[in-house]
Design a binder for these strands. Sequence first.
DNA 1: TAGCTGTATGAAATCGAATTCTTACGAATC
DNA 2: GATTCGTAAGAATTCGATTTCATACAGCTA
Lengths: 303, 303
Amino acid sequence: MLAAVAQIDYRPNRLARNLRLQKSETIGVVVPDIENPHFSEMVRVCEDSAFSAGYRVLLCNTDETPEKQRAYLETLADERVLGAIVTPADSRGVGLESLLELGIPIVAFDRVIDDPRADAVICDNVDSTRRATEHLIWLGHERIALIGGRPDVETGAERLEGYVAAMRAVGLTPFSVNGGFRTDVAEREVQTLLAMPTRPSALVVANNLMTIGALRAIKQTGLRIPLDLALVSIDDPPWAELIDPPLTVVAQPVRRMAETAIQLLLQRIHGRLGEPVRVVLPLDLRVRSSCGMRLSTANQRRG
Amino acid sequence: MLAAVAQIDYRPNRLARNLRLQKSETIGVVVPDIENPHFSEMVRVCEDSAFSAGYRVLLCNTDETPEKQRAYLETLADERVLGAIVTPADSRGVGLESLLELGIPIVAFDRVIDDPRADAVICDNVDSTRRATEHLIWLGHERIALIGGRPDVETGAERLEGYVAAMRAVGLTPFSVNGGFRTDVAEREVQTLLAMPTRPSALVVANNLMTIGALRAIKQTGLRIPLDLALVSIDDPPWAELIDPPLTVVAQPVRRMAETAIQLLLQRIHGRLGEPVRVVLPLDLRVRSSCGMRLSTANQRRG
DNA sequence: TAGCTGTATGAAATCGAATTCTTACGAATC
DNA sequence: GATTCGTAAGAATTCGATTTCATACAGCTA
């Protein structure tokens, strides 16, 4: 009998199976922007583990808009996915209920979700900009500006917070602009910033997309890094060490974060795991050359 | 009646619908590597159009392996997707039959498929390296090496062909290595290449991933671009103009290619369109600074 | 009013695998 | 030999939207 089945290479109809079981062996991956290397790496890792586990990946790109997020989350609920990994586009987590109500497990990535039922894998965003800023302060900089992300999403708010904390801690006045986590916006903001009479001597840029924008703007002004302007970027894309000078960055362990997230999800799907967990992974300051040497001792603030 | 439906916010069970209709409103996107900016941009465009059309995207990453490709294509067939856009990992298009037999439309992206039923959107790969090589020849280079892709896939073979053609056309001896379209392989190959007694004076690198590898290797040797070594890359990732010197590249119109592909697919799904089409889009040589000035007239080959 | 067309409403069949329910038969026990 | 237990094979039900089929009723004409 089984032999006969094998011979006529019978393929069970997955659509019928899905209906009967009220589930599809699919996991949803919801990200703001798949073109951002941060997320394409994350998606890559998820896809790999999902494939190994015999599942498929439904890719959901929210463009950072709550509407698209809601639409996608409802779709995932309709499709009865086994679970979802989501980087929420808004702080409230619009649309998450649709999944939660059906008992579909969710793992938050990068940004936490305001729901006790969801797991989360994040890194210490406050610490990221704090360390970047402290590094610049240690090098002797005082006019340090932050090119921040959207302050209405957690990552943006926390990175702002870390920067402000580091500045205040040594009595410096924080000055930040909102680059919206976008290349084009950051480019414009940095243009105006560098045109100011007392332009900053150092920039902390809150993600890799905005770093591209900042570098473009800097290139236009003719300022040299690190001679005229120091720069620290959050995120360590592949090209960060190839450009001249190689960028000093605070790297997030994206691969480990993604691996953790997908493993958590798979375990939840299989019913293991009890209380929801929140995993916080450590950041890594990688000093390369975009901040130059320590400024003269006269300007130094602390040793 | 409709009002009542609206009130109790009834959501039809999509799984039942799928079974009855023997289709799921999903399109498959099959790429070798979502981390490659070339493909993440492509996927982004597909996702966008699919979402607008009310469809979902099933992401399939083949890692350039025919086995994974076959597995994914069979999965797509099982899921009864409406259509698929695929960049085949092998020249034969392993697994494509599963979809074709079911009458599911396929659009080939980047590389053509050996089946008269599939549409294709490509650019002239032979021309890409030919133009890159001709540019270097025009600048006076003679020892030009190609860091090629996998010669067993179409893109790789054609880019090799274009390079060889350009070299032969002016009586130069082609010399190419196989970088496998991968960063790490290209890095190793370029390391050994530059350690050779008569190292090349110029490099044509067949995609952006290998360019990263090449740049790393070059950086290690301490050679300066373009003074000691000229470089032209196929592909124009966002960072190409940010590095120092900004890279001279032959850009593929990825966005337009992807838009064309997804529009073709959507039209096929809706039954419009007759004979399969093959769209070939033009390339764009973007001269920046990684090839330097024209060498002295003594070395020039033609004006 | 009988006969016809057309819409409308409700009942029934369909999609195909998974699951539950029946029935049957063999083995074991008394 | 009769009863019981266990397994097994087979039939029937389920999932829920879609589609088909059948019946019914209203409106119209002869």
